[in-house]
């Protein structure tokens, strides 16, 4: 057990919390935040596990991947927010309707 693994496990826990939020939160903005929390958890895992090199200098590949991941997350978040705003503008809803209306 090193600090790296501790951080990585924290990342997994963060992922779990985010997942719980995504499933159980009803308000869409909360859902967006929860999804981002999941993402943050994954990024934390990647960064933490990249620090396990013998030399101490972190492995650059996961860092680059996380950068890519962040940009993807930003884009997805923007799209989510755009969709939610549009839905709210059009229907006044802030939650997804419970019943699937096809």
């Amino acid at each position: 057990m090193t600090y790296a693994t501790l951080y990585a496990i924290c990342g997994v826990v963060l992922f779990g919390i985010g997942f719980y939020g995504t499933v159980f939160c009803r308000h869409l903005i909360r859902k967006v935040m929860a999804v981002n929390l999941m993402g943050a958890g994954v990024f934390l895992v990647m960064i933490a596990l990249a620090a396990r090199t013998p030399s101490g200098a972190p492995d650059p590949v996961p860092h680059a991947m996380v950068l890519t991941g962040i940009v993807v997350a930003v884009s997805a978040t923007a799209l989510m927010l755009a969709l939610i705003r549009r839905l709210h503008h059009q229907t006044g809803l802030t939650e997804l309707p419970e019943q699937m209306e096809h």
Partner: peptide
């Protein structure tokens, strides 16, 4: 609106 709800649901699932 139906399409938007469907798109949001799809996006959350996909993410």
């Amino acid at each position: 609106a139906q399409a938007l709800v469907a798109a949001i649901r799809y996006l959350f699932a996909a993410l």
